[in-house]
Computed example of a mutant assay.
Amino acid sequence: MGKAKAKAEQIKGKLKEAAGHAMGDRRMKAEGKAEQLRGKTREELDRATDDLKKDTR
């Protein structure tokens, strides 16, 4: 997954969390937080993969 997609997932999660907060929907808010975390994790994984590729050259 690319860095842009990981960042988009974080943004989508932030919007979902905000919508859940505004509507008082705890489940939606939690899903939004989970999406943000998934996006951050993928972003870090991409960064680590890039670092490994640089080290092996």
Rank of each mutant, 00 (worst) to 15 (best):
G2P: 02
K3A: 10
K3L: 05
K3F: 10
A4S: 10
K5M: 09
K5F: 06
A6C: 05
A6Y: 02
K7G: 00
A8L: 09
A8V: 03
E9Q: 08
E9M: 15
E9I: 09
Q10P: 01
I11D: 13
K12S: 08
K12V: 02
K12F: 04
G13Y: 00
G13W: 00
G13D: 01
G13V: 00
K14F: 05
L15A: 15
K16N: 01
K16C: 00
E17R: 12
E17I: 02
E17Q: 13
E17M: 13
E17F: 06
A19C: 05
A19N: 08
G20Q: 04
G20D: 03
G20C: 03
H21D: 15
H21C: 09
H21R: 14
A22H: 06
G24Q: 04
D25K: 02
R26Y: 10
R27D: 15
R27W: 04
R27P: 00
R27S: 13
M28L: 14
M28E: 13
M28P: 00
M28W: 03
A30D: 12
A30K: 14
A30V: 05
E31Q: 10
K33P: 05
K33G: 11
A34W: 10
E35M: 11
E35C: 04
Q36M: 10
Q36F: 02
L37E: 06
L37R: 15
L37C: 11
G39T: 01
K40A: 08
K40V: 01
T41L: 09
T41M: 07
E43K: 14
E43I: 03
D46L: 08
D46M: 13
R47M: 06
R47S: 11
A48G: 05
A48Y: 07
T49L: 10
T49D: 10
D50I: 05
D51F: 04
D51K: 07
D51S: 12
L52G: 06
L52V: 11
L52I: 09
K53P: 01
K53E: 09
K54W: 02
K54E: 07
D55L: 15
T56C: 12
T56Y: 13
R57C: 13
R57I: 08
R57K: 14
